[in-house]
Write a protein that binds this DNA or RNA. Structure first.
Length: 298
DNA sequence: GCAGATTTTCCTGATT
DNA sequence: TAATCAGGAAAATCTG
Protein backbone atom coordinates (compact mmCIF):
# COMPACT_ATOMS: atom_id res chain seq x y z
CA UNK A 1 0.00 0.00 0.00
CA UNK A 2 1.36 3.37 -1.00
CA UNK A 3 1.44 6.21 1.42
CA UNK A 4 -0.86 7.98 -1.02
CA UNK A 5 -3.53 5.35 -0.80
CA UNK A 6 -5.05 6.60 2.42
CA UNK A 7 -3.88 9.84 3.88
CA UNK A 8 -5.60 11.40 6.79
CA UNK A 9 -5.01 15.03 7.43
CA UNK A 10 -6.16 16.92 10.42
CA UNK A 11 -7.18 19.76 8.24
CA UNK A 12 -9.01 21.85 10.76
CA UNK A 13 -7.41 20.43 13.88
CA UNK A 14 -10.76 20.11 15.57
CA UNK A 15 -13.57 20.09 13.03
CA UNK A 16 -12.99 17.21 10.80
CA UNK A 17 -10.49 15.07 9.10
CA UNK A 18 -10.10 14.88 5.40
CA UNK A 19 -9.27 11.68 3.78
CA UNK A 20 -7.21 12.07 0.70
CA UNK A 21 -7.43 8.97 -1.29
CA UNK A 22 -5.95 8.03 -4.54
CA UNK A 23 -7.69 7.10 -7.67
CA UNK A 24 -4.97 5.53 -9.69
CA UNK A 25 -7.38 4.79 -12.51
CA UNK A 26 -7.17 8.36 -13.65
CA UNK A 27 -3.87 9.04 -15.28
CA UNK A 28 -2.66 12.40 -16.36
CA UNK A 29 -2.14 13.03 -19.99
CA UNK A 30 0.72 14.73 -21.74
CA UNK A 31 3.23 14.23 -19.00
CA UNK A 32 6.20 11.98 -18.64
CA UNK A 33 5.46 11.69 -14.98
CA UNK A 34 2.55 9.62 -13.89
CA UNK A 35 0.57 11.84 -11.62
CA UNK A 36 -2.04 10.08 -9.57
CA UNK A 37 -5.42 11.70 -9.42
CA UNK A 38 -6.20 12.79 -5.92
CA UNK A 39 -9.72 12.52 -4.76
CA UNK A 40 -10.22 14.50 -1.60
CA UNK A 41 -12.96 13.13 0.59
CA UNK A 42 -14.01 14.16 4.03
CA UNK A 43 -14.59 11.92 6.91
CA UNK A 44 -16.69 13.07 9.82
CA UNK A 45 -15.13 12.11 13.13
CA UNK A 46 -18.58 11.71 14.61
CA UNK A 47 -19.57 9.22 12.00
CA UNK A 48 -21.95 11.60 10.25
CA UNK A 49 -21.10 11.14 6.66
CA UNK A 50 -24.15 12.10 4.67
CA UNK A 51 -23.58 13.65 1.27
CA UNK A 52 -24.63 17.15 2.25
CA UNK A 53 -22.11 17.23 5.06
CA UNK A 54 -19.40 16.06 2.71
CA UNK A 55 -20.39 18.70 0.19
CA UNK A 56 -20.29 21.46 2.76
CA UNK A 57 -16.99 20.34 4.10
CA UNK A 58 -15.47 19.96 0.69
CA UNK A 59 -16.54 23.53 0.09
CA UNK A 60 -15.00 24.47 3.42
CA UNK A 61 -11.79 22.80 2.35
CA UNK A 62 -11.64 25.09 -0.67
CA UNK A 63 -12.62 28.29 1.12
CA UNK A 64 -9.06 29.56 1.20
CA UNK A 65 -9.22 29.98 -2.56
CA UNK A 66 -11.97 32.58 -2.19
CA UNK A 67 -10.02 34.80 0.18
CA UNK A 68 -7.00 37.00 -0.36
CA UNK A 69 -3.98 35.55 1.42
CA UNK A 70 -3.87 38.36 3.95
CA UNK A 71 -7.28 37.26 5.19
CA UNK A 72 -6.29 33.66 5.73
CA UNK A 73 -6.33 32.27 9.22
CA UNK A 74 -4.20 29.32 10.26
CA UNK A 75 -6.82 26.87 9.06
CA UNK A 76 -6.83 28.42 5.61
CA UNK A 77 -3.07 28.25 5.49
CA UNK A 78 -3.17 24.63 6.51
CA UNK A 79 -5.67 23.84 3.75
CA UNK A 80 -3.53 25.69 1.23
CA UNK A 81 -0.47 23.73 2.32
CA UNK A 82 -2.25 20.41 1.98
CA UNK A 83 -3.76 21.29 -1.35
CA UNK A 84 -0.47 22.58 -2.73
CA UNK A 85 1.75 19.82 -1.38
CA UNK A 86 -0.51 16.90 -2.21
CA UNK A 87 -2.33 18.03 -5.31
CA UNK A 88 0.01 20.53 -6.96
CA UNK A 89 3.42 19.28 -5.89
CA UNK A 90 2.39 15.64 -5.64
CA UNK A 91 4.33 15.21 -2.45
CA UNK A 92 3.64 12.95 0.49
CA UNK A 93 2.06 13.39 3.88
CA UNK A 94 5.58 13.46 5.35
CA UNK A 95 6.23 16.62 3.41
CA UNK A 96 3.03 18.11 4.84
CA UNK A 97 4.38 17.40 8.29
CA UNK A 98 7.63 19.16 7.46
CA UNK A 99 5.73 22.25 6.41
CA UNK A 100 3.91 22.69 9.70
CA UNK A 101 6.10 25.66 10.62
CA UNK A 102 4.38 27.56 7.85
CA UNK A 103 1.01 27.24 9.54
CA UNK A 104 0.36 30.86 10.42
CA UNK A 105 -2.09 33.59 9.44
CA UNK A 106 -1.88 34.72 5.83
CA UNK A 107 -0.58 38.15 6.78
CA UNK A 108 2.41 36.54 8.45
CA UNK A 109 2.88 34.23 5.50
CA UNK A 110 3.06 37.16 3.11
CA UNK A 111 5.85 38.70 5.12
CA UNK A 112 8.09 35.71 4.61
CA UNK A 113 10.70 35.68 1.91
CA UNK A 114 11.59 32.69 -0.18
CA UNK A 115 14.59 32.09 2.03
CA UNK A 116 12.32 32.19 5.07
CA UNK A 117 10.23 29.46 3.48
CA UNK A 118 13.35 27.40 2.84
CA UNK A 119 14.67 27.95 6.34
CA UNK A 120 11.36 26.89 7.88
CA UNK A 121 10.74 23.73 5.93
CA UNK A 122 13.67 22.92 3.69
CA UNK A 123 13.71 22.72 -0.08
CA UNK A 124 9.97 22.19 -0.32
CA UNK A 125 9.75 25.74 0.98
CA UNK A 126 11.16 27.04 -2.26
CA UNK A 127 8.41 25.35 -4.23
CA UNK A 128 5.68 26.34 -1.80
CA UNK A 129 6.80 29.96 -2.07
CA UNK A 130 6.23 29.84 -5.81
CA UNK A 131 2.70 28.55 -5.27
CA UNK A 132 1.73 31.14 -2.71
CA UNK A 133 -0.80 33.51 -4.29
CA UNK A 134 1.00 36.85 -4.37
CA UNK A 135 -1.67 39.21 -3.20
CA UNK A 136 -0.56 42.40 -1.58
CA UNK A 137 -0.38 42.50 2.15
CA UNK A 138 -2.10 45.37 3.94
CA UNK A 139 -0.33 48.65 3.46
CA UNK A 140 -0.18 49.16 7.19
CA UNK A 141 2.20 46.29 7.72
CA UNK A 142 5.61 46.99 9.09
CA UNK A 143 8.22 46.87 6.38
CA UNK A 144 11.70 46.49 7.73
CA UNK A 145 14.66 47.20 5.50
CA UNK A 146 12.86 49.26 2.94
CA UNK A 147 16.17 50.14 1.48
CA UNK A 148 16.93 46.54 0.73
CA UNK A 149 18.39 46.92 -2.70
CA UNK A 150 17.75 44.14 -5.11
CA UNK A 151 19.57 45.09 -8.23
CA UNK A 152 17.68 43.04 -10.73
CA UNK A 153 14.24 41.92 -11.52
CA UNK A 154 14.25 40.84 -15.06
CA UNK A 155 17.21 38.58 -15.52
CA UNK A 156 17.03 34.83 -15.47
CA UNK A 157 18.22 34.52 -11.91
CA UNK A 158 15.62 36.75 -10.42
CA UNK A 159 12.77 34.35 -10.68
CA UNK A 160 14.06 31.51 -8.69
CA UNK A 161 17.22 32.04 -6.90
CA UNK A 162 16.89 34.81 -4.44
CA UNK A 163 15.00 37.66 -2.97
CA UNK A 164 12.97 40.04 -5.02
CA UNK A 165 11.86 43.43 -3.87
CA UNK A 166 8.63 42.00 -2.61
CA UNK A 167 10.55 39.31 -0.79
CA UNK A 168 12.72 41.84 0.87
CA UNK A 169 9.78 43.93 1.88
CA UNK A 170 8.17 40.90 3.36
CA UNK A 171 10.82 40.02 5.87
CA UNK A 172 8.98 38.94 8.97
CA UNK A 173 9.47 40.46 12.35
CA UNK A 174 10.92 37.18 13.50
CA UNK A 175 13.36 37.27 10.69
CA UNK A 176 14.11 40.88 11.39
CA UNK A 177 15.61 39.99 14.73
CA UNK A 178 17.66 37.23 13.20
CA UNK A 179 18.77 39.42 10.37
CA UNK A 180 19.83 42.15 12.74
CA UNK A 181 22.07 39.69 14.52
CA UNK A 182 23.42 38.27 11.30
CA UNK A 183 24.22 41.64 9.89
CA UNK A 184 25.62 43.19 13.02
CA UNK A 185 28.58 45.26 12.13
CA UNK A 186 27.43 45.82 8.64
CA UNK A 187 26.84 49.36 7.68
CA UNK A 188 23.14 48.92 7.34
CA UNK A 189 23.01 48.12 3.65
CA UNK A 190 21.26 45.02 2.63
CA UNK A 191 22.51 44.19 -0.77
CA UNK A 192 22.96 40.56 -1.52
CA UNK A 193 26.31 39.18 -0.49
CA UNK A 194 28.13 37.17 -3.07
CA UNK A 195 28.20 34.10 -0.83
CA UNK A 196 24.44 34.42 -0.39
CA UNK A 197 24.14 34.50 -4.16
CA UNK A 198 25.99 31.17 -4.37
CA UNK A 199 23.97 29.71 -1.52
CA UNK A 200 20.76 30.65 -3.32
CA UNK A 201 21.98 29.00 -6.50
CA UNK A 202 22.58 25.83 -4.51
CA UNK A 203 19.01 26.04 -3.24
CA UNK A 204 17.71 26.36 -6.74
CA UNK A 205 17.15 23.23 -8.86
CA UNK A 206 17.47 25.43 -11.93
CA UNK A 207 21.17 25.93 -11.19
CA UNK A 208 22.06 23.08 -8.86
CA UNK A 209 23.73 20.81 -9.83
CA UNK A 210 24.09 22.03 -13.42
CA UNK A 211 25.91 25.27 -12.63
CA UNK A 212 26.98 24.65 -9.05
CA UNK A 213 26.75 21.60 -6.86
CA UNK A 214 27.44 20.32 -3.38
CA UNK A 215 30.64 18.33 -3.48
CA UNK A 216 30.33 17.39 0.17
CA UNK A 217 27.24 18.82 1.80
CA UNK A 218 28.25 17.57 5.26
CA UNK A 219 31.41 19.66 5.01
CA UNK A 220 29.64 22.52 3.26
CA UNK A 221 31.96 22.12 0.28
CA UNK A 222 30.59 23.12 -3.08
CA UNK A 223 31.96 23.24 -6.58
CA UNK A 224 31.39 25.70 -9.41
CA UNK A 225 30.78 24.08 -12.76
CA UNK A 226 29.81 26.95 -15.02
CA UNK A 227 32.00 29.43 -13.21
CA UNK A 228 32.09 31.97 -16.02
CA UNK A 229 28.34 31.84 -16.41
CA UNK A 230 27.85 32.26 -12.67
CA UNK A 231 30.18 35.25 -12.70
CA UNK A 232 28.24 36.73 -15.58
CA UNK A 233 24.98 36.19 -13.68
CA UNK A 234 26.47 37.92 -10.66
CA UNK A 235 27.48 40.88 -12.77
CA UNK A 236 24.05 41.02 -14.32
CA UNK A 237 22.45 40.89 -10.92
CA UNK A 238 24.62 43.69 -9.63
CA UNK A 239 24.01 45.61 -12.83
CA UNK A 240 27.66 46.17 -13.43
CA UNK A 241 27.81 48.77 -16.14
CA UNK A 242 31.47 49.44 -16.82
CA UNK A 243 32.53 46.00 -17.96
CA UNK A 244 31.01 42.56 -17.82
CA UNK A 245 31.83 40.61 -14.70
CA UNK A 246 34.29 37.82 -15.31
CA UNK A 247 35.38 34.95 -13.15
CA UNK A 248 38.63 36.67 -12.20
CA UNK A 249 36.79 39.57 -10.59
CA UNK A 250 34.06 37.34 -9.25
CA UNK A 251 36.57 35.06 -7.54
CA UNK A 252 38.24 38.13 -6.03
CA UNK A 253 34.91 39.03 -4.48
CA UNK A 254 34.68 35.48 -3.12
CA UNK A 255 38.19 35.66 -1.65
CA UNK A 256 37.25 38.83 0.16
CA UNK A 257 34.85 36.67 2.17
CA UNK A 258 37.62 34.40 3.44
CA UNK A 259 38.33 36.97 6.14
CA UNK A 260 34.67 37.21 7.00
CA UNK A 261 34.30 33.53 7.74
CA UNK A 262 31.55 33.04 5.23
CA UNK A 263 33.72 31.33 2.64
CA UNK A 264 36.90 29.26 2.75
CA UNK A 265 39.18 27.91 0.10
CA UNK A 266 39.65 24.20 -0.39
CA UNK A 267 43.30 23.25 -0.81
CA UNK A 268 44.36 22.18 -4.29
CA UNK A 269 40.79 22.05 -5.50
CA UNK A 270 40.00 24.36 -8.35
CA UNK A 271 36.60 26.05 -8.49
CA UNK A 272 35.88 24.55 -5.10
CA UNK A 273 34.93 26.49 -2.00
CA UNK A 274 33.55 25.80 1.43
CA UNK A 275 31.02 27.84 3.35
CA UNK A 276 32.53 29.09 6.58
CA UNK A 277 31.01 29.11 10.05
CA UNK A 278 29.51 32.55 9.49
CA UNK A 279 27.45 31.39 6.53
CA UNK A 280 23.82 30.72 7.36
CA UNK A 281 20.73 29.34 5.68
CA UNK A 282 22.53 26.40 4.12
CA UNK A 283 20.10 23.79 5.38
CA UNK A 284 18.53 21.51 2.85
CA UNK A 285 17.11 18.03 3.05
CA UNK A 286 17.91 17.34 -0.57
CA UNK A 287 21.42 18.46 -1.58
CA UNK A 288 21.82 18.62 -5.35
CA UNK A 289 18.12 17.73 -5.56
CA UNK A 290 19.01 14.07 -5.88
CA UNK A 291 15.82 12.90 -4.18
CA UNK A 292 13.72 15.04 -6.46
CA UNK A 293 15.53 13.72 -9.52
CA UNK A 294 14.96 10.12 -8.46
CA UNK A 295 11.34 10.82 -7.66
CA UNK A 296 10.56 12.49 -10.94
CA UNK A 297 13.16 10.67 -13.03
CA UNK A 298 14.79 13.95 -13.98
C1' DG B 1 30.24 65.18 3.78
C1' DC B 2 31.91 61.29 6.50
C1' DA B 3 32.98 56.60 7.96
C1' DG B 4 32.45 51.87 7.31
C1' DA B 5 31.39 47.71 4.67
C1' DT B 6 31.54 45.58 0.46
C1' DT B 7 32.56 45.15 -4.28
C1' DT B 8 34.97 46.21 -8.50
C1' DT B 9 38.99 46.81 -11.05
C1' DC B 10 43.60 46.08 -11.98
C1' DC B 11 47.64 44.08 -10.99
C1' DT B 12 51.67 40.66 -10.03
C1' DG B 13 53.13 36.27 -9.14
C1' DA B 14 52.35 31.34 -8.21
C1' DT B 15 50.25 27.01 -9.32
C1' DT B 16 47.90 23.49 -12.03
C1' DT C 1 49.91 28.31 -22.74
C1' DA C 2 45.67 29.05 -20.53
C1' DA C 3 43.04 28.94 -16.58
C1' DT C 4 42.81 29.50 -11.92
C1' DC C 5 44.23 31.03 -7.35
C1' DA C 6 45.92 34.38 -3.88
C1' DG C 7 46.09 38.70 -2.30
C1' DG C 8 47.57 43.89 -2.42
C1' DA C 9 45.95 48.33 -3.56
C1' DA C 10 42.92 51.82 -4.93
C1' DA C 11 38.59 53.32 -6.50
C1' DA C 12 33.68 52.93 -6.53
C1' DT C 13 29.27 52.20 -4.48
C1' DC C 14 25.97 52.31 -0.98
C1' DT C 15 24.30 53.03 3.63
C1' DG C 16 23.24 55.38 8.14
Amino acid sequence: MSIFDHLFFDVNCTDFKSEVSLNKDNETQGSDIEIPHLDIKLEDPNGESDDSNKENRNEDLENWRKKPVNQWDEKDTKKWLISTIIVELRESYDVCCRSEKLVMPGQELLRLSKNNFINLCGTIGSRLFEFLPKQSAPKTRHIPFQRYRVPYSDDETSVDSTVSISDAESVSNIDLARTKVERKGRSGRHTLWVWEFLRDLLHNPKYCPEYIYWKDYSKKIFCLVKNKEIARMWGKRKKIKKKEMDYDKFSRALRYHYKKGTLESVDKERLTYRFGPAATGLETDDPNFEKARVKYQL
